[in-house]
């Protein structure tokens, strides 16, 4: 299957698309359901051509009914199918919240392991693009606090493909955060493998940059802010290790703690609000399990406890930035 003409470099969106086409090709039990995903091919084009390729029996344009989209997908999974649900924006997932956290997430638990729901709910997420309050959210913490859901957030094309393939094969429900600002970002295009060689396991973090002075843990779009901040730190004489979590649930604590045995300093960055955000969860785990490793107070950098505002100066003011990450990391290094 040659989806992508240019085999050398693939963007984040086409990597996702390739993952979906490959898995739908391999397993005819996959059903896709979402708003505008068939005829149109998705608001951003992630499912472009999917219905033409696999037919209207496997790719459904649903009415604007997120709860019923998720619930119907749940029923499909109860009866032998696997489901891929697209949220047009991950912000809209709130309309399907009850079905996700009460129906889907708990099914395996409620049935003492009899029934699992092999469902991926994926959708474009994240701020920094002027999407304003309802097209900018990172609401992963809602679901991290709902037992039974895996949570994934890739930052590169290869991870986007490899993690989505793994998510689609997972027997559990997975919420998959796609960073829409990265969908067509030229600077991050990279070659991706075909088939099983492209698989990336869930639950494994990746060290994006090695360093020995401070560990910066992040995921999604903030990976790039942190890498830029690491360059700033280098100019100040500090080497930062940047860890991309890639999967939040299950959390790869080991990679974080191993890094801290070298650096003894921790900064965690996410673009979700501060209070009960996932960065706080990482900090709490380190405080409980690696307190002795800390030579400086661990730091959270997050969005302020605000919605994401629209006008650019407002949006940038409330979100983590290269500057705010650099400054926090420097303070930590100099503590």
């Amino acid at each position: 299957m040659a989806l992508i003409e240019n085999t050398e470099k693939v963007n984040y969106l086409n990597a996702l698309r390739e993952a979906i086409f490959e898995e739908f090709e391999l397993n005819e039990n996959f059903i896709a359901i979402g708003e505008d995903i068939g005829l149109l091919g998705g608001a951003f084009g992630v499912t472009d051509g999917l219905q033409a390729r696999f037919g209207t029996d496997r790719v459904y344009d649903a009415p604007i009914s997120e709860a019923t989209i998720v619930g119907t997908a749940c029923g499909l999974c109860l009866n032998g199918k696997r489901a891929m649900v697209e949220m047009q924006f991950i912000d809209f997932i709130s309309c399907g919240f009850d079905q996700i956290v009460n129906m889907v997430a708990t099914y395996h638990y409620r049935t003492a392991g009899e029934v699992s729901i092999p469902m991926v709910i994926r959708g474009p997420a994240g701020a920094y693009g002027g999407g304003a309050l309802y097209h900018s959210q990172m609401n992963e913490a809602w679901f991290a606090n709902s037992p039974g859901l895996k949570i994934v957030c890739p930052s590169t094309p290869a991870d986007a493909k490899g993690l989505l393939k793994s998510a689609l094969r997972d027997p559990n429900p997975v919420i998959f955060y796609e960073i829409k600002e990265l969908y067509r970002k030229r600077q991050i295009e990279e070659p991706v493998e075909r088939g099983d060689a492209s698989l990336v396991p869930l639950g494994k973090a990746k060290v994006r940059r090695e360093g020995s002075d401070v560990t910066i843990v992040t995921y999604g779009q903030n990976v790039y802010h942190c890498l830029d901040a690491a360059n700033n730190l280098k100019a100040e004489g500090f080497e930062a290790e940047v860890i991309d979590l890639r999967t939040l649930v299950p959390l790869d604590k080991q990679t974080v703690i191993e890094s801290m045995t070298k650096t003894n300093r921790l900064v965690v960055v996410n673009e979700a609000p501060r209070t009960c955000g996932f960065a706080g969860e990482v900090l709490a785990n380190v405080a409980e399990e690696a307190f002795e490793l800390l030579d400086a107070p661990p730091v959270r950098i997050s969005r302020m406890d605000t919605p994401v505002p629209w006008a650019k100066p407002l949006e940038m003011h409330v979100l983590p930035s290269v500057e705010s990450i650099t400054e926090a990391a420097l303070r930590t290094c100099r503590y």
């Binding site: 997908a73 029923g75 009866n79 079905q99």
Partner: peptide, 11 residues
Amino acid sequence: GTIPAACGVVL
């Protein structure tokens, strides 16, 4: 909340 799941199983 189970009407959607009912839709799914019969689909």
